[in-house]
Design a protein around this nucleic acid. Structure first.
Length: 423
DNA sequence: TCTGGGGTCCTAGGACCC
DNA sequence: TCTGGGGTCCTAGGACCC
């Protein structure tokens, strides 16, 4: 059996752990630039007109009228809380697949069938006790079924956040309770196609001819169809897959046309992704830089372009990667536009220790590596980004994301620790 | 004024090779 | 009349996920 453990409105819950005064009050978390809503607790959801991914400016009034508490996203806090949740899950099983920041598949095959029902409740309670985060638990034979079980666990109040599919009757019952459009793996487009056959529930979908499913929804649809019957097609993958690419692309807090500022943002993103690259002990063979205006604007002149540069030798050095990225940026920058976003992606990742060098590159690598190491060391000691490549500059305020409502990074920064009583 | 960001997987089609 | 067939690699686009 496989359990799918999913945190309830995770980002909002993280904020509430450190703000017990907000218990029972509506809370939402905003995306980068405080642009739109990416998480809402159940109190906020129950207020009408707070759909997810709504731009904040469109519903500002509703938020104010209902005294909804808004937080800017604080990923440092959320990733740390996520790790605490995952560590608790590992107390139950050695095989845990971290599917996303707020959910995991947990292999329960080591437990007897009769124990699973009470075990599921135990998981829910212990995560809450250890971390303060409420979770839902769905258990079934396959990943797809446990995902549906989890949904049903939360949707139906009498389940109290836990649903275990341990019989054929319960499997059928579950499938009949879930609508086609709510099935994991059926998105908007496929839902329309499936519904056009007259199917309404997941059960109806599971009764469609497999050949039709295969033709309309590719092999992914077929796997899903089989998993709903109880046949395993997606194995649990306990280790994080090493990433195929690392990238970042963020909107500026303001529209920019000054090349120097865009350059700063670009260089800063390079150092961000290069850090991640070194953490996973890889080097990148290709780097892509792209630049875009605001595609939502009806009045701004539109421009977007990208360029990919292949490095002679894969590299993980911030200095080398910055140099190449800025060459790329120079190629696509055109004056006269109001730019909204710049992005950097690293591809063709190879293990750091398998890189082949020409003699010339080798000399350069040794030099860059020593310098990069020294910088990493200083930053570890004195704080992130204290030492950086000169291009990054210090005008971050003029381009960086707007984060008006960020909460303190309670668990990862000494100077932002939660204090109790007067200091 | 203000509209997220980071991913995965699959398929089809083109270029190229023998 | 009839114009190979299989393989690889790459890219773009679609669909979905959190």
């Amino acid at each position: 059996m496989i359990a799918l453990v999913d945190c309830n409105s995770f980002y909002a819950s993280c904020e509430q752990v450190f703000r017990p005064d907000l218990k029972g009050k509506p809370v939402v978390v905003l995306s980068n630039n405080d642009g739109c809503i990416i998480a809402a607790n159940k109190e906020a959801k129950s207020l009408a007109h707070i759909p997810m991914f709504q731009p904040v400016f469109k519903i500002k009034k509703v938020l104010e009228q209902n005294n909804v508490v808004c937080f800017s996203s604080n990923y440092t806090l959320y990733s740390d809380m996520s790790q605490r949740v995952m560590n608790t899950l590992r107390e139950f099983s050695p095989l845990v697949e971290e599917y996303s920041i707020d959910e995991s598949f947990v292999d329960l095959s080591g437990y007897s069938a009769s124990r699973v029902q009470e075990l599921a409740t135990e998981i829910k309670d212990r995560v809450h006790q250890n971390t303060g985060i409420p979770v839902g638990v769905g258990v079934a034979k396959t990943k797809s079924l446990s995902k549906l079980a989890n949904r049903y666990a939360k949707k139906e109040p009498k389940n109290d956040g836990v649903y275990v599919v341990d019989s054929e009757e319960k499997r059928i019952h579950l499938l009949k309770k879930i609508l086609v459009k709510d099935v994991w793996g059926i998105g908007r487009k496929h839902a329309v196609r499936v519904e056009s056959t007259g199917a309404i529930t997941a059960y109806d979908f599971s009764k469609l001819p497999v050949a039709w499913v295969r033709k309309q929804m590719t092999v992914l649809g077929e796997r899903l169809w089989r998993e709903l019957q109880g046949e395993t097609c997606n194995e649990l993958v306990p280790l994080p897959k090493s990433k195929q690419g690392i990238g970042t692309a963020k909107s500026f807090g303001y529209k920019l046309n000054e090349y120097g500022l865009i350059e700063e943002a670009c260089a800063s993103y390079v150092s961000e992704v290069a850090d991640l690259l070194r953490q996973q002990k890889s080097a990148a063979g290709k780097i892509e830089v792209f630049l875009a205006t605001n595609s939502f604007s009806d009045t701004d002149k539109q421009y977007r372009n990208k360029v990919v540069i292949t490095l002679e030798t894969p590299s993980s050095s911030t200095i080398k990667l910055t140099k190449v990225a800025l060459q790329a940026l120079r190629k696509i920058y055109r004056p006269g536009y109001r730019y909204k976003k710049v992005g950097v992606n690293l591809f063709n990742l190879v293990p750091d220790n398998k890189v082949q060098f020409s003699l010339f590159d080798f000399k350069e690598k040794i030099e860059c590596e020593a310098l990069t190491k020294a910088i990493d060391k200083l930053n570890n000691k004195y704080g992130k980004n204290k030492v950086k490549v000169a291009t990054v500059g210090n005008r971050e305020k003029q381009w960086a994301l707007i984060k008006e409502h960020r909460s303190p990074r309670f668990t990862t920064q000494w100077d932002e620790l939660l204090t109790i009583g007067k200091v």
